[in-house]
């Protein structure tokens, strides 16, 4: 459970790693978000805005209060199905915060170089290289050009 001044404890970071693997699970031999070691970046990225920070803390706080977690020694000790169930409960009870948490996780995962390589994204800035497109060809307008004007002319 995050401290009263909003800092993550070592236990929170362990929970976060497990949560990340449930949000974005492994894909074949490619690790999930937790297995990629993204917990630290998620925590750091949450400093980007008060909204995202609040979302992270709210989700971790809610998970620490989950009845199953408390009974069985914490979220990390739960079986996978019950970890998912706990997350689903948080999603239902705190929809806005959970959406912010998903935003934070996806922003972190989909800016990781290993993920870029996996999905075939160059990962370079859009500029200055840009992209090539086939040049404009006016022949494509042949069909529309046959149509009579149909805009209304006011009297």
């Amino acid at each position: 459970m995050p401290t009263s001044d909003g800092q993550l404890t070592p236990a929170d970071r362990t929970v976060l790693t497990h949560v990340l693997d449930q949000i974005i699970p492994p894909d074949g031999d490619f690790p999930g978000a937790g297995g990629l070691g993204l917990a630290e970046r998620v925590e750091r990225s949450s400093q980007r805005s008060a909204r995202l920070r609040s979302a992270l803390l709210s989700v971790l706080d809610a998970l620490s209060l989950d009845i199953s977690s408390r009974a069985e020694g914490g979220y990390a000790a739960l079986e996978a199905e019950r970890q998912i169930s706990a997350l689903t409960t948080v999603e239902s009870s705190l929809p806005e915060q959970f959406a912010g948490f998903i935003e934070l996780v996806y922003e972190t995962y989909y800016t990781d170089d290993r993920v870029y390589k996996r999905i075939g994204w160059a990962g370079r800035p859009p500029q200055p290289e840009g992209f090539d497109l086939d040049p404009w060809d006016p022949a494509i307008l042949e069909n529309t050009r046959k149509r009579a004007p149909f805009w209304r002319q006011p009297a």
Binding site: I24, P25, L87, A99, I102, E103, Y106, Y110, I119, W121
Partner: peptide, 25 residues
Amino acid sequence: GPVNTSLGGAHEPVKWGAGHHEDFA
């Protein structure tokens, strides 16, 4: 790009959990 694709733009984000990678792809 991948971030905006995953977050869905005007639509629901890519689903979390099982099926995430298929939905994204």
